[in-house]
Write a protein that binds this DNA or RNA. Structure first.
Lengths: 235, 235
DNA sequence: GCACTACTACGGTCCCCGCCGAACCATGGC
DNA sequence: GCCATGGTTCGGCGGGGACCGTAGTAGTGC
């Protein structure tokens, strides 16, 4: 089988604190340089370089060389999914020390990207609002966009055909994937729909990224749209 | 956040070869004793005991004491999902030595349980057959049971209402989750539907477990059902 | 050409952790 | 009561790997 040895190898790679920090930093889906990653991990560049090389040959990361810089990113959405699922298990672990609930942490809980979709209080609130309005129906395994939901998406500028193109084999209905939020313990929208929604929010300037991290902020314009059109209850 | 420290802790627990072997052995959803797990991991009982204690306090495993035995099982489906996703990433790793493609491995590829649903060639074949017959529609994110599919499920003895009860908030339609098979690289059915289907196959004697491992075998009766009713192309 | 930056390769140190042997509890059968 | 069995705890050993020095190699700008 994909022997336990290979399984252990991947898990062990993710299990080192320095490497875990780098992987987390890449969870916004963008590409960073080795020096930046060394900084977030708190190690010297040469140590970081070694870690990055190992993760790249293992297929966790991909690199794009560009001039004298080498940008490292997560190799695939599959890796991001893996990290999400580990985070869910880790969230059940009682917090050990809780010494620093810094502002960074607060921002992250409020709104963040989870590789390609929105998470945190914002992600959950948008999801709840769309359920309340009957735009999507969710169960533990999957979600379904209703006919009013399709009209709503078209209304805010998201074309259903474009959405269908993002997905694989299309079915008659537009489906999506629920993703359990590790900080809120409630589901938010993921999958092709979640990715499209997140990209659209960034395009339209409804949310913007904060200082190159995973956290995002809702713009005034976005707040109006989320409250008015989505019917979301936000802070 | 669910700090990178906790993330790394969970991943590191899964990253040790001995612990990974134990976790894999528990992936059939049943509970095993410490001695059995020590055997599959190839370590002494006292070493296994230490590993099991750590994984239990970390929330990866649960124990049920029963007489002088202590049965260890995966703590939750969440843990199983985590392991599935790590396996998917690990499957992309080129096989390192491939020295023993033993019969055990062959049986595992042919048909196995993946915590609570069927996987391997059998799982993929059943999924393909149900798609071909128009019983389910799948995309990358989710799947939908059609009306003929609901009738088919009732026909083979699976009640849709009972299925709905297994899931969380019910939607108008019966949804399911696709799970990418790490050996076949194609999706099979998971989620509540996959779990119900697997349980039903075991109940009806269509498949039976092999020597207490994850591998399962299709019985002659099951072969008839899978070919005749499902229309599956099997071996 | 030279200086500069970003990254990689090598050698050595240190520590964590997985492992086992032996001894120590708990349960069940006689 | 006694032994047998499954399981856990403790102490010491050993190896793997994470880390940082220093040194070396591309690519860029002057």
């Amino acid at each position: 089988m994909a022997s336990t040895g290979q399984f252990a190898e991947i898990a062990a790679l993710a299990g080192d604190p320095a490497r875990a920090a780098m992987l987390h930093a890449l969870m916004d889906g963008r590409a960073l340089t080795a020096t930046e990653l060394a900084h977030v991990a708190g190690v010297t560049p040469q140590t970081a370089s070694g870690h990055l090389a190992r993760m790249t040959t293992a297929g966790l990361l991909g690199v794009e060389k560009q001039g004298r810089h080498r940008y490292h990113r997560l190799a695939s959405p599959t890796v991001a999914r893996m990290m999400e699922s580990i985070m869910q298990v880790a969230a059940d672990l009682e917090p050990p020390k809780r010494l620093s609930v810094g502002p960074n942490d607060t921002a992250l809980r409020a709104a963040r990207t989870c590789y390609d979709h929105l998470a945190g209080q914002l992600g959950v609130a948008l999801c709840d609002a769309m359920i309340d309005q009957g735009f999507v129906e969710l169960d533990n395994d999957a979600g379904l966009v209703t006919d009013p939901g399709l009209r709503f998406l078209a209304d805010i500028g998201l074309d259903a055909d474009a959405l269908a193109a993002r997905r694989g084999k299309r079915s008659g209905r537009l489906l999506c994937r629920p993703c359990l939020d590790w900080s809120e313990r409630r589901p938010h929208l993921a999958g092709g729909l979640g990715a499209a929604l997140c990209a659209h929010c960034l395009d339209q300037g409804w949310v913007r990224r904060l200082h190159g991290a995973r956290a995002v902020a809702v713009t005034p314009k976005g707040l109006g749209v989320f409250r008015g059109r989505f019917g979301a209850r936000l802070g």
